[in-house]
Amino acid sequence: MTIVNASGDVVEQGWTTVESLEGYGPHHGIIVSPAVLLDSFDEADHVSLSHTGVRLSVEDDVSEIAAYVPHLGLIELVFAQFKDGRPYSTALTLRRDYKFTHELRASGDVLPDQAIFLIRSGFSSVDVPDQFTAQEFKKSLMAYSVAYQSAHDSHVSLIDDLRRSTPDVAAE
């Protein structure tokens, strides 16, 4: 499995996805289902939660794990199909409403050509599907240097910032 960060660079995979907690202590860097999270973790145990990630399908409701969210070390949103765009809105909601600041990972059926949308929506890493390479994701991230909208990335927005900060350009 290959993980790329928001710049498209390959990063060390520090997390293990598990179905149950058997054999794992509380500080192992594991990614669990929302059911396991709710059953086995205390929402007040912020230290354990910071070593824990949760994996959400498009059908899972973030509000059910609301109390855990700000303290989790990682949230992974699984794309069922690349054309099912719900995780983009979920990502935004996690960043904006839940003030989630840690790693937000996209996995499942994602295309390299969507990389820029993922990062701009608030994802900070991508689990690269087997049929693609990290290089393809990086290349796609480099495709654009400007964007119209403000979003969760370093792109300057034509609408909100750039035209105002460079009036000579706008006046052309």
């Binding site: 690349f82 099912d84 983009y88 949308f117 701009r120 929506s121 964007a147 609408i159």
Partner: peptide, 13 residues
């Protein structure tokens, strides 16, 4: 037009 062009969140509705 500007807001909706290559909108990161709303390109896979």
């Amino acid at each position: 037009r500007q807001w909706s062009t290559l909108h990161p969140e709303f390109s896979f509705l």
